[in-house]
């Protein structure tokens, strides 16, 4: 995979951002949100023809800054995974992502950015790096109170520490966020899944997360 392609996607996203009507961007006030929560992980690693089931709990933190139709979002998650199969080695999972987005419409956001994940065990560390393009749409179920959202993405480039080169990655997240009245706090519940594959289809990791987090709007 060429190293130049992520740069092209970043450039395209910035171009779209600046092509937005000025009034559309100006109508979105600056918004800063941080969140922290718990996550339940479920990972299925495929090594050859043998799947390695792993489950565990973890935590997730994140922050986002948005305004004038632009978005900068960062997320970090970690957890400890274990398996009922004694032959499968326990491991830790750490992942993080930084995304830059634009909102051509108040309910639609386009994002691009890197997403990295590492599984660390005594046997070593397996890493994935995805350069993702995402689209997120929000449905206000109760305006300013309860939103549902869906985010789908795919990797336009990536790398992996698995033998062989990167094959691809697809994923998505669906959830709902409810703001607690008269407070800056919101509760978010979400399900996300992505699957990264090497160029050898017998090597893949499928990572699922159930997220329960609290958001605080700082501004």
């Amino acid at each position: 995979m060429s190293a130049r392609r992520p740069c092209l996607w970043w450039a395209a996203a910035l171009a779209v951002a600046f092509l937005l009507p000025g009034s559309a961007r100006a109508q979105r006030p600056l918004r800063i949100v941080v969140e922290a929560g718990a996550s339940a992980h479920r990972v299925r690693s495929l090594v050859g023809t043998t799947p390695e089931p792993l489950d565990g709990l973890g935590m997730v933190v994140g922050a986002s800054v948005s305004g004038r139709g632009l978005l900068l979002e960062a997320r970090y998650a970690q957890g400890q995974l274990s398996s009922e199969d004694a032959a499968v080695e326990d491991r830790d999972v750490v992942e993080g992502e930084v995304l830059l987005g634009v909102s051509p419409h108040r309910l639609v956001t386009l994002k691009v950015g890197p997403h990295a994940r590492a599984y660390r065990s005594d046997a070593g560390t397996r890493r994935w790096v995805f350069w993702e393009a995402r689209v997120r749409t929000t449905a206000p179920l109760i305006p300013s109170r309860l939103d549902a959202y869906a985010e789908l993405w795919g990797a336009v480039a990536g790398s992996t520490s698995l033998s062989g080169s990167f094959g691809g990655e697809r994923g998505g997240e669906v959830g709902a966020a409810m703001e607690i009245p008269r407070t800056p706090i919101a509760v978010r519940v979400a399900y996300r899944i992505d699957r990264g594959t090497g160029d050898n289809p017998t090597r893949s990791d499928t990572a699922e997360q159930m997220v329960f987090a609290m958001r605080v709007r700082l501004r």
Binding site: R170, G172, V189, A190, R192, I193, R195, T197, T206, E208
Partner: peptide
Amino acid sequence: LPRMAGAGPDGGGGRFAV
């Protein structure tokens, strides 16, 4: 979503809570 991500139907049952 699991199918869309290419993981087949083998998604976790916990997602039904969502």
